[in-house]
């Protein structure tokens, strides 16, 4: 009893809090920190599992220097992934914002469209997308050599070619259109998150703005946009993370490929490099955007 009295209120509160997060904390230490540290150790070693135990031979920074100098593909894939991210992330964020704004309007079929726009989340987070695109019959049934989806960019390219536009511009336009089609597959969750934000904007605000003579355009830029700007930050970070950690990401699949050849030290070094770059980008983007975000409470 005496013991209990000595615990101050804040100490007791702290204890309860720690108890609540205890399962996560145990998982974090043993299922995250420990493997993460081991991965760092691996990256400085040559790892051999073939004898039934983990056999490490110190390599210093050799795995790291090899990733940049010896390996021919890693740097290429890395720059490819980074440059793809540079245009894909803003496109996905603005596309999903646009669609969310449209789906937030009142019209009869909006429930159906909301369902449709979530469908890509189910399809694209799994194997289906890769399988359909790799299927020969599916490809054969599409006309032309470039096979994405029904709205073929090929036809657009054909029109351009017939009107005498130079080949480099055609390829460029084609790649932009292809990546536009890809957007739909990576925007599902972002649309839902934006939609939830838009629904939090009360209709009375809209009325008040209307009475004050604001147009829908003004309302969007002066009220809606600032109010959902925290979500803009959330979605940007989420999109960067999901493009970086996606199974279909070229670097990720290359690292998995190396790991499956049992070159575990080397693959660990590459994934560390990759992770560090991701991490720095996310931190920079976060602090850059966070300064511009409008928070209602402050």
């Amino acid at each position: 009893m005496k013991m209990k009295n000595r615990l101050t209120y804040s100490r007791r509160e702290a204890m309860r809090g720690v108890l609540f997060i205890a399962p996560w904390l145990i998982g974090f230490i043993f299922l995250f920190v420990r493997p993460f540290v081991t991965a760092i150790v691996f990256s400085f070693n040559n790892v051999d599992l073939s004898n039934g135990f983990i056999d490490l031979t110190g390599m210093g920074f050799k795995n790291y220097t090899d990733a940049f100098t010896e390996d021919t593909k890693f740097m290429v894939l890395l720059t490819q992934a980074l440059s793809k991210m540079v245009y894909q992330v803003p496109l996905v964020v603005f596309f999903s914002l646009f669609i969310a704004v449209v789906l937030n309007q009142k019209f009869a079929s909006r429930g159906f469209f909301r369902l449709v726009f979530f469908l890509p989340t189910i399809i694209s987070s799994g194997v289906v997308l890769g399988i359909i695109n790799g299927d020969t019959l599916y490809n054969a049934m599409q006309v032309g050599e470039k096979t994405t989806y029904m709205l073929q960019t090929v036809s657009v390219q054909d029109i351009l070619r017939q009107s005498g536009v130079s080949e480099t511009i055609i390829t460029y336009v084609g790649s932009i259109l292809d990546s536009l089609l890809e957007l739909f597959w990576y925007s599902g969750i972002q649309i839902v998150i934006f939609l939830s934000g838009l629904q939090g904007i009360s209709p009375t605000l809209r009325e008040a703005a209307h009475i004050d003579g604001a147009s829908a355009w003004d309302f969007f830029w002066l009220i809606t946009f600032p109010m959902i700007s925290p979500l803009l930050l959330t979605n940007t970070v989420f999109t960067i993370i999901s493009t970086f950690t996606d199974y279909n990401n070229v670097v990720i699949s290359y690292i998995s490929e190396i790991a499956s050849k049992m070159e575990l030290g080397f693959s660990s070094a590459m994934s560390m490099v990759y992770f560090l770059i991701t991490f720095v980008i996310i931190i920079v983007v976060y602090f850059f955007l966070n300064r511009k975000v409008f928070y209602r409470n402050t």
Binding site: A14, M15, L31, P35, V47, I241, S268, S271, Y274
Partner: peptide, 29 residues
Amino acid sequence: RFRFKGRELLFMCVLFTIMVPAETIIIPS
């Protein structure tokens, strides 16, 4: 709901775990 020492730091750790691709720690796991 609860205030305790290191809460913010631990929550940063939660966010940190999202950023690490599964592939990074899969072999040790």
